[in-house]
Simulated scan of single mutants.
Amino acid sequence: MRARLGGWRPKLVVSDLDGTLLGSAGAVSPRTAEAIDACRGTGVPFVGATGRGPRLLESVRAALGGQGFAVLAQGGYVVRFGSDGAADEVLRTVGMARDVATEVIAAIEEVAGELVVAVEDAAEQAEALRPLRVQHGFDWPYPEPAHLLPRHQVLPVGAVLKVFLRSARLGEDELVALARSVVDPAVAELTHAGLGFIEVLPPGVTKATGLAVVLDQVGVGFGDVLVFGDMPNDLPMIEAVTAAGGRAVAVANAHPAVRAAAGDRTSGHDADGVARYVEAVLALGETDV
């Protein structure tokens, strides 16, 4: 560890949640919770960056101990948690117009065939924690309330935070590659989190641009960030950090593209990989004093 990091130490740590910080049961282990607290105890903010939307804000709050910042919806919704009874502060919320989402879905279906759709309302419409809008047959992987709707009713009247597209014959890597061949990045951002479907987001919305909002708040640059991830939706964040001279770590269960992009590895999410790495970094800090 000393040889790899030299004298570099993070001024902020950010981690993906599902598949990285959280175990398979979707919870933070006691060891990981202690590592997060220890990190914050040294004055280094610990931030969560997740694809989960604002309808799942309470689960994100619980995972992060209700402190600091969180980047949700792949970067489209950024929040500072309130403390001592204060309200949360929403720092970023970005939506996509319904007609744009409709055009993007149609363009992707031209090359990928018929798709099954789910939609999350734009963040400004989600204050009542509206359930996900899911087309019949989507096979949503999480046990949460959802509005099951026919295809023509899935898109809401207003803006959407993001669209989920599932193919009956294509995996997410193949589907996202086809989608990128016909969708201009200036129109929509495309990614996936290894869940069997791809996500369509407003242009420029990535975990990297969401994290940039947090970094601006705390006065830290990408080069001072230690980032953990596991799936392609983490790549913009990993690439921004490594390009600036920061450090990126892939958990053992990460997607091949993430393992290739990250400069370091740690144990899997079910073996407290993030906690193990953070503990080692903090131990180096102690011996360097």
Results as ranks from 00 to 15, higher is better:
Ala3Ile: 15
Arg9His: 15
Val13Thr: 13
Ser15Trp: 05
Asp16Arg: 01
Ala27Thr: 14
Ser29His: 05
Ala35Asn: 13
Cys39Tyr: 03
Gly41Leu: 13
Val44Leu: 04
Phe46Thr: 08
Val47Ile: 12
Val47Lys: 00
Ala49Lys: 02
Thr50Gly: 11
Gly65Ser: 00
Gly65Trp: 04
Phe69Leu: 04
Ala70Arg: 05
Ala73Lys: 07
Ala87Glu: 05
Thr93Pro: 01
Val111Trp: 03
Asp121Gly: 07
Ala122Leu: 11
Leu129Gln: 12
Arg130Asp: 07
Arg130Ser: 12
Leu132Ala: 05
Arg133Trp: 13
His136Ser: 14
His136Gln: 14
Phe138Lys: 02
Pro143His: 01
Pro150Trp: 02
Gln153Tyr: 01
Val154Leu: 03
Leu155Val: 09
Ala159Asn: 15
Leu161Thr: 15
Leu175Pro: 00
Ala177Tyr: 04
Leu178Ser: 00
Pro185Phe: 08
Ala186Tyr: 11
Glu189His: 09
Thr191Phe: 11
His192Ser: 04
Ala193Val: 11
Ala193Leu: 09
Leu201Arg: 02
Pro202Trp: 07
Thr206Met: 05
Ala208Trp: 01
Gly210Leu: 10
Leu211Gln: 03
Val214Glu: 01
Leu215Met: 10
Asp216Gly: 14
Gly223Met: 12
Val225Lys: 10
Gly229Ala: 07
Gly229Arg: 06
Asp230Val: 07
Pro236Thr: 09
Ala243Trp: 09
Asn253Val: 10
Ala254Pro: 01
Ala254Leu: 05
Ala254Tyr: 02
Ala257Asp: 14
Ala257Tyr: 06
Asp264His: 08
Arg265Ile: 12
Ser267Tyr: 13
Gly268Met: 05
Asp272Val: 13
Ala275Glu: 12
Glu279Gly: 08
Asp288Glu: 15
